[in-house]
Design a protein around this nucleic acid. Structure first.
Lengths: 227, 227
DNA sequence: AGGGGTAGGATTGTGTACAATCTAAGTCTG
DNA sequence: CAGACTTAGATTGTACACAATCCTACCCCT
């Protein structure tokens, strides 16, 4: 059962973003306009809008006359992403703790359950996506749309970073951290929640391999022209 | 001497962004595709890309089948913008203080001089743009591209906020604050620089009128027909 | 056989035509 | 005369066609 009505550019961008979060599409993969257009049954015009939006989010790199490719963040960019998250998320978590309602807490618990289920089913892609959505959900609870947008972008790029630099394929971020976080949110304990988020992000980074020298170049030319 | 060659979408977006920073184009103003296209001598296709990029930056609101309008941030959004700045900029300033070179300091001094000159010449638009660029320059010095991008967006939206909610038209943010900041950067005193930035942003917010009910109008007509 | 050059195919960049939709003026009616 | 309806104009949404550019494969020459 295909989608008969043509999706809008925004829908396509969101769907592709989800696919990145699930590691269905991986860094470096080419996103041909014709191909994407055929998948969603739309013309290239709409695909183009979606791809440019993804490029603006840092998920896709558009090379002139060559096409769109899923971005491959460098080590430096990867560090920046997590530094930015370390800056934004604890604060937003603090704010979320003060505003969280029972409905919010229930939703977060469901997220955690789904995550557990996905891990148990061996669906690591789904688990990863849910793990990201958990962080986005916290930003939503804080009711700060501006920063929420930033965090969305950061989590999308985090998915790329994890795809590239994760150490052990199987071991996923233990959602114990998520569980403790929800407890702190439920207790409206902003300080504790912020601290838990800080630790959680630190743990995440330590499970990445961001040592100084992988530094892959796209082409020989880039490698030679680089200092 | 005009530019005969057709500018790219990115150039047009940057140019329009500058115009917003200078308050040459104001919130609510309509950006017709044909009109913009004629100004830059490009087809609607390219204009469209530029407008959608601006929309993604929050500078423009696109209403389906109605067109693109310069965004009019609400009070809530205005507060969020400055809360986000208060969160990001002190930290980035701290980082900038540790990395600033003599060339950077010289560039910042030139910025301040230009700003003074603009104020003296009564060119408040130019002064405002330079004031914004000053903040962007600091982010650049910190060498954190990810956060720099966020700050760029925030400063663009700040221009809109200032256009809508600034109290006294003439009084501009005293660049004494900027001067003191550069001194702290030059001394590589991160803590002091961060604190100065915090105060500077606080001062900025206090000069805005963000009280709860400025009664925003959807159209010019509504605004004029209202007392 | 290796290297360079060239022609062909494929993919993206841009302008333009047509369809969909909204805005506004004009008309008709109570 | 006010209000609702209709119609014409203008503007955006989308698809398509052509131009520009790049990649690949083949060929020729040394």
């Amino acid at each position: 059962m295909q989608a008969p009505s043509a999706p809008t550019a925004e829908k396509i961008a969101d769907h592709l973003t989800e696919a990145v979060h699930e590691h269905k599409v991986l860094p470096g993969m080419k996103l041909s306009e014709d191909e994407v257009g055929e998948i969603y049954s739309v013309g290239r015009t709409v695909v183009r809008q979606a791809l440019r939006r993804l490029a603006h989010d840092g998920l896709v790199t558009i090379e002139r006359n060559r096409g769109a490719f899923v971005a491959k963040p460098t080590i430096k960019e990867a560090r920046e992403v997590f530094e930015a998250r370390a800056l934004l998320e604890p604060r937003i978590t603090h704010a979320a703790a003060e505003r969280s309602t029972d409905a919010d807490i229930a939703l977060l618990h469901r997220h955690i359950d789904d995550e557990h289920a996905a891990v148990h089913a061996g669906n690591s892609g789904m688990a990863l996506k849910l793990s990201g959505q958990f962080h986005i959900e916290i930003a939503r609870i804080a009711d700060q749309k501006t920063i929420e947008t930033f965090i969305r972008q950061l989590i999308s790029r985090s998915s790329l970073v994890i795809a590239l630099y994760w150490r052990r394929r199987n071991a996923l971020c233990e959602s114990d951290a998520h569980h403790a976080l929800v407890d702190a949110l439920h207790a409206h304990n902003g300080e504790a929640a912020a601290e838990l988020m800080r630790e959680h992000l630190r743990d995440l980074v330590t499970q990445l391999d961001l040592r100084d020298q992988p530094e892959q170049f796209a082409s020989l030319k880039d490698a030679l022209l680089s200092p």
